[in-house]
């Protein structure tokens, strides 16, 4: 990946991963900053404009690197955590909370992976009897920028050595060659974010088409990797039930039930302030106009709009998967 501009925090300039990225971008303007927040956080920025050509910010992740997930988000392990080695994503999904949460669409990369690993290890040691699940890909796509980040090169070997700790790589990417080049790891789930093709085309901009994602998932499953299905958020389009039924039929054609570690079903939900920013960025976007209700500081679909669809998709998943492998995120 090439960038026109790379911002670098002084404290991470000498890190080998920083140096590798800078060396592979010899034409980029290198701009030094003290803390990445000086570049990333100022309010007078426009996420939509920056999305045209995001810059890269390389920073040291300080403070709490591993965070517990909210109580409703889990895959049945004893404890669930998430961490973000990057902020922002290569793709431009119209429903994504990132566009409303951050002022800037620039990518922030935290290359001090060793600190993340240290914190994951400390968490694991603190809970020796528990099964722990660590989610990457909450504030970014886990695999889409692998050629830049080298994320899996560092994190997969760690999880391979610690089988009681699980890792989820959440992605829409078909960038899987580095996974296929190695043996699958029992406690790593490659979780694909999926939606019906028509929704992917209209709302998951710049992301690979559904067919390509399913093909990537199929290849990984054949190679022995555990696959996750992440239908999050469900989008209430016209004839949504039909779209989702057809979509699940397509999924089953590619992925037999035993290959699927888990499926999750999520609803569109957003803090009101984040939703307002998304609306302001894309005032022409019908997604933000249809069937949404603002209640108790959160914007979500009205139950009358979503409940039936959600049940239908759940039933569709349950027709092929045991319910113990289906999880709800709402």
């Amino acid at each position: 990946m090439k960038f026109d501009r790379i911002y670098v925090e002084q404290s991470i300039l000498d890190h080998p991963r920083t140096q590798t990225i800078l060396a592979s971008n010899p034409k980029a303007e290198i701009i030094h900053c003290e803390r990445y927040g000086e570049v990333f956080n100022p309010k007078s920025q426009n996420f939509r404009f920056q999305k045209r050509k995001p810059a890269l910010i390389i920073a040291r992740k300080e403070g709490q690197r591993i965070l517990p997930t909210p109580p409703d988000y889990g895959l049945g392990a004893d404890m669930h955590f998430y961490f973000s080695h990057m902020l922002n994503c290569l793709y431009d999904c119209r429903y994504c909370f990132l566009q409303g949460m951050y002022q800037s669409a620039n990518y922030v990369l935290f290359p001090n992976y060793e600190d993340f690993i240290q914190d994951i290890d400390a968490t694991r040691i603190k809970h020796p009897e528990k099964e722990l699940f660590f989610f990457s890909g909450y504030d970014c796509d886990s695999l889409a920028m692998e050629s830049l980040t080298g994320f899996t090169d560092v994190f997969l070997p760690y999880f391979e050595d610690h089988p009681k700790a699980w890792l989820e790589l959440r992605t829409k990417s078909v960038n899987i060659s580095h996974l296929l080049d190695r043996s699958p790891i029992e406690n790593v789930v490659v979780a694909f974010s999926l939606n019906p093709d028509s929704i992917a085309k209209s709302l998951e901009l710049k992301a690979p088409p559904l067919a390509a994602r399913l093909k990537a998932a199929e290849k990984l499953a054949q190679a022995g990797w555990k696959i996750g299905l992440r239908i999050d958020p469900i989008v209430c389009v016209s004839d949504a039930k039909e779209h989702y039924n057809q979509f699940l039929d397509t999924v089953w054609q590619h992925l037999p039930s035993p290959a699927i570690h888990s499926a999750t079903l999520g609803s569109f939900r957003s803090p009101t302030s984040v939703f307002r920013r998304m609306e302001n960025l894309y005032p022409e976007e019908p997604l933000f106009m249809k069937g949404m209700k603002n209640q108790n500081g959160m914007v979500a679909y009205e139950p009358s709009v979503e409940t039936d669809l959600r049940k239908s998709v759940w039933d569709g998943l349950a027709s092929k998967l045991p319910e113990s492998r289906i999880f709800s995120c709402s």
């Binding site: 911002y7 701009i31 900053c33 000086e38 570049v39 100022p42 920056q50 045209r52 810059a55 620039n106």
Partner: peptide
Amino acid sequence: ANKISSDASKEGFYPQCPWDHKWRGCA
């Protein structure tokens, strides 16, 4: 300018430029 600072304040500014241009960037 890709970074603007001053001798009168500690605060710095980073004009964002997602547009193509012919110029060299500079602090």
